[in-house]
Protein backbone atom coordinates (compact mmCIF):
# COMPACT_ATOMS: atom_id res chain seq x y z
CA UNK A 1 0.00 0.00 0.00
CA UNK A 2 1.27 3.38 -0.93
CA UNK A 3 2.04 5.69 1.92
CA UNK A 4 1.08 9.32 2.02
CA UNK A 5 4.66 10.27 1.33
CA UNK A 6 4.93 8.05 -1.75
CA UNK A 7 1.67 9.40 -3.01
CA UNK A 8 2.89 12.96 -2.75
CA UNK A 9 6.14 12.18 -4.52
CA UNK A 10 4.25 10.19 -7.14
CA UNK A 11 2.18 13.23 -7.94
CA UNK A 12 5.33 15.30 -8.18
CA UNK A 13 6.89 12.81 -10.58
CA UNK A 14 3.91 12.88 -12.87
CA UNK A 15 3.66 16.64 -13.00
CA UNK A 16 6.20 17.44 -15.76
CA UNK A 17 4.75 14.91 -18.19
CA UNK A 18 1.16 15.92 -17.52
CA UNK A 19 1.78 19.67 -17.63
CA UNK A 20 3.88 19.51 -20.79
CA UNK A 21 1.36 17.36 -22.63
CA UNK A 22 -1.44 19.59 -21.48
CA UNK A 23 0.38 22.63 -22.84
CA UNK A 24 1.30 20.81 -26.05
CA UNK A 25 -2.32 19.98 -26.62
CA UNK A 26 -4.22 22.95 -25.27
CA UNK A 27 -2.14 25.91 -26.45
CA UNK A 28 -1.81 25.13 -30.17
CA UNK A 29 -5.27 23.65 -30.40
CA UNK A 30 -6.95 26.69 -28.91
CA UNK A 31 -4.84 28.86 -31.19
CA UNK A 32 -6.06 26.84 -34.16
CA UNK A 33 -9.62 27.27 -32.96
CA UNK A 34 -9.12 31.01 -32.60
CA UNK A 35 -7.40 31.41 -35.99
CA UNK A 36 -10.16 29.43 -37.65
CA UNK A 37 -12.54 32.24 -36.77
CA UNK A 38 -10.32 34.92 -38.31
CA UNK A 39 -9.73 36.25 -41.75
CA UNK A 40 -5.98 35.92 -41.51
CA UNK A 41 -3.50 35.60 -44.37
CA UNK A 42 0.25 35.85 -43.86
CA UNK A 43 0.57 37.71 -47.14
CA UNK A 44 -1.71 40.45 -45.83
CA UNK A 45 -0.33 41.26 -42.39
CA UNK A 46 -2.34 43.59 -40.20
CA UNK A 47 -5.57 42.80 -42.03
CA UNK A 48 -6.82 40.22 -39.53
CA UNK A 49 -10.48 40.51 -38.73
CA UNK A 50 -13.17 38.40 -37.12
CA UNK A 51 -14.82 36.11 -39.62
CA UNK A 52 -17.03 33.86 -37.51
CA UNK A 53 -17.69 30.57 -39.23
CA UNK A 54 -16.87 31.90 -42.68
CA UNK A 55 -13.64 29.88 -42.96
CA UNK A 56 -15.52 26.70 -42.15
CA UNK A 57 -18.11 27.53 -44.77
CA UNK A 58 -15.41 28.12 -47.38
CA UNK A 59 -13.45 25.03 -46.42
CA UNK A 60 -16.42 22.69 -46.25
CA UNK A 61 -18.02 23.94 -49.47
CA UNK A 62 -14.74 24.01 -51.40
CA UNK A 63 -15.07 21.27 -54.04
CA UNK A 64 -11.47 20.32 -53.19
CA UNK A 65 -12.64 19.42 -49.68
CA UNK A 66 -15.19 16.88 -50.88
CA UNK A 67 -12.62 15.38 -53.23
CA UNK A 68 -10.11 15.44 -50.40
CA UNK A 69 -12.50 13.72 -48.05
CA UNK A 70 -13.29 11.08 -50.64
CA UNK A 71 -9.59 10.59 -51.39
CA UNK A 72 -8.86 10.28 -47.66
CA UNK A 73 -11.56 7.63 -47.28
CA UNK A 74 -10.33 5.75 -50.37
CA UNK A 75 -6.73 5.91 -49.17
CA UNK A 76 -7.51 4.78 -45.63
CA UNK A 77 -10.02 2.15 -46.79
CA UNK A 78 -7.79 0.81 -49.54
CA UNK A 79 -4.72 0.53 -47.36
CA UNK A 80 -6.72 -1.09 -44.55
CA UNK A 81 -8.21 -3.64 -46.92
CA UNK A 82 -4.85 -4.60 -48.41
CA UNK A 83 -2.77 -4.49 -45.24
CA UNK A 84 -5.25 -6.23 -42.94
CA UNK A 85 -6.36 -8.79 -45.54
CA UNK A 86 -2.77 -9.42 -46.54
CA UNK A 87 -1.68 -9.33 -42.90
CA UNK A 88 -4.08 -12.13 -41.96
CA UNK A 89 -2.74 -14.29 -44.77
CA UNK A 90 0.86 -13.44 -43.95
CA UNK A 91 0.30 -14.22 -40.28
CA UNK A 92 -1.23 -17.59 -41.13
CA UNK A 93 1.69 -18.33 -43.42
CA UNK A 94 4.36 -17.32 -40.91
CA UNK A 95 2.62 -19.40 -38.25
CA UNK A 96 3.39 -22.57 -40.24
CA UNK A 97 6.65 -24.30 -39.48
CA UNK A 98 9.09 -24.05 -42.40
CA UNK A 99 12.80 -23.72 -43.05
CA UNK A 100 14.28 -20.27 -42.56
CA UNK A 101 11.14 -18.92 -40.92
CA UNK A 102 13.09 -16.42 -38.85
CA UNK A 103 14.78 -14.90 -41.88
CA UNK A 104 11.52 -14.66 -43.85
CA UNK A 105 9.96 -12.94 -40.87
CA UNK A 106 12.73 -10.34 -40.87
CA UNK A 107 12.27 -9.76 -44.60
CA UNK A 108 8.52 -9.33 -44.21
CA UNK A 109 8.68 -6.74 -41.42
CA UNK A 110 11.50 -4.73 -43.03
CA UNK A 111 9.34 -2.23 -45.00
CA UNK A 112 7.96 -0.83 -41.74
CA UNK A 113 11.37 0.59 -40.87
CA UNK A 114 11.93 2.36 -44.17
CA UNK A 115 11.35 6.10 -43.90
CA UNK A 116 8.28 7.29 -45.86
CA UNK A 117 10.18 9.55 -48.23
CA UNK A 118 12.51 6.71 -49.22
CA UNK A 119 9.79 4.18 -49.88
CA UNK A 120 7.72 6.67 -51.85
CA UNK A 121 10.61 7.70 -54.10
CA UNK A 122 11.95 4.19 -54.61
CA UNK A 123 8.50 2.93 -55.61
CA UNK A 124 7.69 5.89 -57.80
CA UNK A 125 10.97 5.95 -59.71
CA UNK A 126 12.57 2.57 -59.70
CA UNK A 127 9.53 0.32 -59.66
CA UNK A 128 6.60 2.24 -61.13
CA UNK A 129 8.34 4.39 -63.72
CA UNK A 130 6.40 3.83 -67.00
CA UNK A 131 9.54 3.44 -69.13
CA UNK A 132 12.51 2.36 -67.05
CA UNK A 133 10.72 0.99 -64.01
CA UNK A 134 10.83 -2.65 -63.09
CA UNK A 135 7.06 -3.11 -63.36
CA UNK A 136 7.16 -1.76 -66.92
CA UNK A 137 9.85 -4.29 -67.79
CA UNK A 138 7.81 -7.12 -66.25
CA UNK A 139 4.74 -6.02 -68.21
CA UNK A 140 6.69 -5.91 -71.47
CA UNK A 141 8.23 -9.31 -70.77
CA UNK A 142 4.74 -10.74 -70.71
CA UNK A 143 3.84 -8.81 -73.84
CA UNK A 144 1.61 -6.31 -72.01
CA UNK A 145 1.42 -2.57 -72.28
CA UNK A 146 3.30 -0.98 -69.33
CA UNK A 147 1.07 0.97 -66.97
CA UNK A 148 1.75 4.64 -66.36
CA UNK A 149 0.97 4.22 -62.66
CA UNK A 150 1.07 7.80 -61.49
CA UNK A 151 -0.49 9.12 -64.67
CA UNK A 152 -3.43 6.73 -64.91
CA UNK A 153 -4.09 5.76 -61.29
CA UNK A 154 -2.27 8.19 -59.00
CA UNK A 155 -4.33 7.52 -55.89
CA UNK A 156 -4.10 3.77 -56.33
CA UNK A 157 -0.34 4.08 -56.73
CA UNK A 158 -0.12 5.84 -53.39
CA UNK A 159 -2.39 3.22 -51.83
CA UNK A 160 0.05 0.54 -53.03
CA UNK A 161 3.07 2.29 -51.56
CA UNK A 162 1.42 2.97 -48.21
CA UNK A 163 0.04 -0.58 -48.06
CA UNK A 164 3.55 -1.92 -48.53
CA UNK A 165 4.64 0.15 -45.54
CA UNK A 166 1.80 -0.98 -43.29
CA UNK A 167 1.50 -4.65 -44.24
CA UNK A 168 4.38 -5.56 -41.88
CA UNK A 169 2.68 -3.84 -38.95
CA UNK A 170 -0.56 -5.76 -39.47
CA UNK A 171 1.35 -9.00 -40.04
CA UNK A 172 3.44 -8.64 -36.91
CA UNK A 173 0.52 -7.86 -34.62
CA UNK A 174 -1.80 -10.49 -36.07
CA UNK A 175 0.98 -13.05 -35.87
CA UNK A 176 1.52 -12.23 -32.21
CA UNK A 177 -2.20 -12.71 -31.59
CA UNK A 178 -2.25 -15.94 -33.58
CA UNK A 179 0.63 -17.41 -31.62
CA UNK A 180 -1.18 -16.86 -28.35
CA UNK A 181 -3.96 -19.17 -29.55
CA UNK A 182 -4.23 -22.31 -27.50
CA UNK A 183 -3.01 -25.17 -29.69
CA UNK A 184 -5.07 -27.69 -27.74
CA UNK A 185 -8.21 -25.96 -28.86
CA UNK A 186 -7.14 -26.26 -32.46
CA UNK A 187 -6.19 -29.90 -32.01
CA UNK A 188 -9.48 -30.71 -30.37
CA UNK A 189 -11.34 -29.20 -33.30
CA UNK A 190 -9.12 -31.10 -35.67
CA UNK A 191 -9.91 -34.37 -33.94
CA UNK A 192 -13.59 -33.60 -34.10
CA UNK A 193 -13.13 -33.52 -37.83
CA UNK A 194 -13.29 -29.79 -38.47
CA UNK A 195 -11.65 -28.84 -41.76
CA UNK A 196 -9.03 -26.16 -42.14
CA UNK A 197 -11.52 -23.58 -43.39
CA UNK A 198 -14.09 -24.11 -40.66
CA UNK A 199 -11.32 -24.14 -38.03
CA UNK A 200 -10.19 -20.79 -39.38
CA UNK A 201 -13.69 -19.28 -39.34
CA UNK A 202 -14.85 -20.66 -36.00
CA UNK A 203 -11.67 -20.68 -33.90
CA UNK A 204 -8.84 -18.65 -35.40
CA UNK A 205 -10.78 -15.63 -36.66
CA UNK A 206 -12.76 -15.01 -33.44
CA UNK A 207 -9.51 -15.31 -31.49
CA UNK A 208 -7.89 -12.67 -33.70
CA UNK A 209 -10.93 -10.38 -33.75
CA UNK A 210 -9.62 -8.04 -31.09
CA UNK A 211 -6.15 -7.80 -32.60
CA UNK A 212 -7.74 -7.03 -35.98
CA UNK A 213 -9.79 -4.25 -34.39
CA UNK A 214 -6.67 -2.80 -32.79
CA UNK A 215 -4.79 -2.89 -36.09
CA UNK A 216 -7.67 -1.23 -37.94
CA UNK A 217 -8.01 1.56 -35.39
CA UNK A 218 -4.29 2.30 -35.00
CA UNK A 219 -3.65 2.20 -38.74
CA UNK A 220 -6.61 4.52 -39.32
CA UNK A 221 -5.16 7.09 -36.93
CA UNK A 222 -1.82 7.04 -38.73
CA UNK A 223 -3.29 6.80 -42.24
CA UNK A 224 -5.46 9.87 -41.74
CA UNK A 225 -2.18 11.79 -41.47
CA UNK A 226 -0.37 10.34 -44.49
CA UNK A 227 1.61 13.24 -45.86
CA UNK A 228 5.18 12.61 -47.01
CA UNK A 229 4.19 9.95 -49.54
CA UNK A 230 1.88 12.41 -51.28
CA UNK A 231 4.30 15.31 -51.08
CA UNK A 232 7.20 13.54 -52.79
CA UNK A 233 5.23 11.63 -55.42
CA UNK A 234 2.34 13.73 -56.72
CA UNK A 235 2.12 16.96 -54.73
CA UNK A 236 -1.57 16.22 -54.43
CA UNK A 237 -2.08 16.11 -58.19
CA UNK A 238 -2.73 15.77 -60.99
CA UNK A 239 -5.29 18.45 -60.19
CA UNK A 240 -6.56 17.39 -56.80
CA UNK A 241 -6.68 13.68 -57.59
CA UNK A 242 -4.44 12.70 -54.71
CA UNK A 243 -5.17 15.55 -52.33
CA UNK A 244 -6.33 14.32 -48.92
CA UNK A 245 -7.75 16.43 -46.11
CA UNK A 246 -4.32 16.53 -44.43
CA UNK A 247 -2.63 17.59 -47.63
CA UNK A 248 -5.28 20.21 -48.33
CA UNK A 249 -4.63 21.84 -44.97
CA UNK A 250 -0.89 21.83 -45.67
CA UNK A 251 -1.47 23.53 -49.03
CA UNK A 252 -3.65 26.21 -47.50
CA UNK A 253 -1.27 26.86 -44.64
CA UNK A 254 2.23 26.72 -46.07
CA UNK A 255 1.65 27.34 -49.77
CA UNK A 256 -1.26 29.80 -49.75
CA UNK A 257 -0.48 31.27 -46.32
CA UNK A 258 -4.19 31.26 -45.52
CA UNK A 259 -3.97 30.84 -41.75
CA UNK A 260 -7.72 31.14 -41.19
CA UNK A 261 -8.73 28.62 -43.82
CA UNK A 262 -6.01 26.15 -42.88
CA UNK A 263 -7.00 26.37 -39.22
CA UNK A 264 -10.61 25.60 -40.05
CA UNK A 265 -9.37 22.63 -42.09
CA UNK A 266 -7.18 21.54 -39.19
CA UNK A 267 -10.15 21.52 -36.85
CA UNK A 268 -12.12 19.45 -39.36
CA UNK A 269 -9.22 16.97 -39.47
CA UNK A 270 -9.16 16.81 -35.68
CA UNK A 271 -12.89 16.06 -35.57
CA UNK A 272 -12.49 13.30 -38.16
CA UNK A 273 -9.61 11.69 -36.26
CA UNK A 274 -11.48 11.94 -32.98
CA UNK A 275 -14.34 9.84 -34.29
CA UNK A 276 -11.87 6.98 -34.64
CA UNK A 277 -9.88 7.84 -31.53
CA UNK A 278 -12.89 7.52 -29.24
CA UNK A 279 -13.35 3.88 -30.20
CA UNK A 280 -9.67 3.10 -29.88
CA UNK A 281 -9.27 4.74 -26.49
CA UNK A 282 -12.29 2.85 -25.19
CA UNK A 283 -10.94 -0.45 -26.46
CA UNK A 284 -7.53 0.09 -24.92
CA UNK A 285 -9.09 1.33 -21.69
CA UNK A 286 -11.08 -1.87 -21.36
CA UNK A 287 -7.89 -3.83 -21.70
CA UNK A 288 -6.21 -1.87 -18.92
CA UNK A 289 -8.21 -3.47 -16.12
Amino acid sequence: MATLQTRASARLMMTPAVVLLLLWMAVPLSMTLYFSMLRYNLLMPGMEEWAGFLNYRFFLTDPAFLTGLLNTLLLVGGVLLISVGGGIMMALLLDQPFFGQGIVRLMVIAPFFVMPTVSALVWKNMLMHPVNGLFAWIARTFGLQPVDWFGEAPLFSIVMIVSWQWLPFATLILLTALQSLDTEQKEAAEMDGAGAVSRFIHIVLPHMARAITVVVLIETIFLLSVFAEILVTTNGGPGVQTTTVTYLVYVQALLQFDVGGASAGGIVAVVLANIVAIFLVRLIGKNLE
Binding site: L21, W24, M25, V27, P28, L29, M31, T32, F35, I221, L224, S225, F227, V245, T246, V249, Y250, A253, L254, V259, A262, S263, G265, G266, I267, A269, V270, L272, A273, N274, V276, A277, L280, V281, I284
Partner: peptide
Protein backbone atom coordinates in the same frame (compact mmCIF):
# COMPACT_ATOMS: atom_id res chain seq x y z
CA UNK B 1 -2.90 8.49 -25.39
CA UNK B 2 -5.61 10.68 -26.85
CA UNK B 3 -3.12 13.50 -27.35
CA UNK B 4 -1.19 11.17 -29.64
CA UNK B 5 -4.30 10.77 -31.74
CA UNK B 6 -4.54 14.47 -32.38
CA UNK B 7 -3.63 14.82 -36.07
CA UNK B 8 -0.49 16.90 -36.49
CA UNK B 9 -2.12 18.94 -39.19
CA UNK B 10 -4.57 20.27 -36.61
CA UNK B 11 -1.78 22.15 -34.87
CA UNK B 12 0.46 22.81 -37.87
CA UNK B 13 -0.47 26.49 -38.22
CA UNK B 14 0.08 27.60 -34.61
Amino acid sequence: LSTKMLPAVGVLVP
